[in-house]
Design a protein around this nucleic acid. Structure first.
Lengths: 218, 218
DNA sequence: CCATCTTTTGAGAGTTACTGTCATTTGAGA
DNA sequence: TCTCAAATGACAGTAACTCTCAAAAGATGG
């Protein structure tokens, strides 16, 4: 489910940054790795906002973060991953699985999504918005958003499959996951487009109500 | 709406290959261009099936089609475009706009989609299946499927906007387009996964019924 | 048929994201 | 302090593009 990372160098990457900050018994090595990762990302975002995404080379980022290009690619599989890879998937999955199995899936998604974003807002509001702004503005990133492996679609498929207790997802599960996933993306991007001023609960409620109505009004 | 092509070299590319074959008053130049385009694609698909997508370089394709790499990129903006760029968008748009404006959008989509695929099947069944198989099998292509500009989402947004007679799409239109677009993609890929044996009308009917139900059963 | 103009093409050089290898460094554990 | 495994950097290589410019080929008017 998680975006393919160079697992050799990061065998046990923390699943959630928030979580990572809280349960802090990290070895020196792990602390350094975390710090390096953060530095790379921070410098990258700085350069992106200064001179644009396309105009910023990996070499520049590596130099700014004071690591070699080799090391850069050990931390992020691609340049896109700087923006696209997040560590929220596991949190979302457990939030979804924590909901009652007989609840309508749309409801589970709505609640899980609102909860997750609320939690994130407390810790990394600014970074979250910067990311989303980049995604909306850079076509290459917007495209990569649906890359298999880290898309909402794939996440929902996983949950639906597990919830049903089967091995392989059915076609209906895939359609459901794809449609709700696409709507989820729209909601998050809309929220980011308004610089996070819009109430996320209202937005998600509205979005999922539209889905639940079967597009009756359209 | 159409995928970004190097417009300099192809100022008036035919909008639809079927259409293009029928209305044949083409100048020598235009006939040669069309032929070159077809040759490149044909040779590319041959190489892809022989040795795989990733293992085939643009240089090899260009050599097989007896053009220079420069020329390749004049015909296809990227290697992905060989598979992803199609010329069906305009046909789909007009099919959709031909439906009554007060018909539920889901119904319009269902009918237009079934009609379009049926029409395509008569002329290019084999190529269509080869394409779709590539898309399902190559992760990079699967990702590129949602690239802004040629996604079903963007197409549906255009139609919804025009149908409503407004300038900018509303948020609800974007959500609707994204969700139905994602479902459309699932349907087409499912159909291709079964090598086109499944009845396309049944599949699309079923898929859009699921959407229309608001995922009540899930 | 010729001259001219425009479009298309090929050659070649350059950029950049990414891969793979190997030697060196650095933290972990006894 | 010694040893081992993990992390890093240096380096070479590949392939997808981009740009520029000159040559070739089709269109056009006489």
């Amino acid at each position: 489910m998680t975006p393919k990372q160079p697992t050799a160098a990061l065998p046990d990457a923390p699943t959630n940054p928030v979580q990572a900050l809280l349960e802090a018994p990290l070895s020196l090595r792990e602390r350094k790795k975390l710090k390096t990762r953060q530095t790379i990302r921070r410098e990258a975002y700085r350069l992106f906002t200064e001179q644009g995404y396309e105009n910023t080379t990996v070499e520049q980022i590596a130099a700014a973060a004071e690591v070699s290009p080799s090391t850069f690619f050990r931390y992020f599989a691609t340049k896109d991953d700087l923006v696209l890879s997040d560590e929220y998937d596991p949190a979302m999955v457990s939030a979804l699985l924590a909901r009652p199995a007989d609840e309508p899936f749309l409801t589970s998604c709505r609640e899980a999504l609102i909860g997750l974003i609320r939690a994130l807002l407390q810790h990394e509001r600014q970074e979250l918005l910067t990311r989303m702004r980049l995604v909306t503005e850079v076509p290459a990133l917007r495209a990569g958003l649906d890359r298999s492996g880290n898309s909402p679609r794939d996440l929902y498929i996983t949950v639906l499959t597990r919830r049903a207790g089967v091995e392989e997802p059915t076609y209906d599960m895939r359609v459901t996951a794809a449609a709700i996933g696409a709507a989820t993306t729209e909601a998050v991007l809309q929220w980011a487009a308004g610089d996070g001023r819009e109430d996320i609960a209202d937005l998600v409620d509205h979005t999922f109500a539209l889905l639940g109505s079967g597009f009756a009004g359209v």
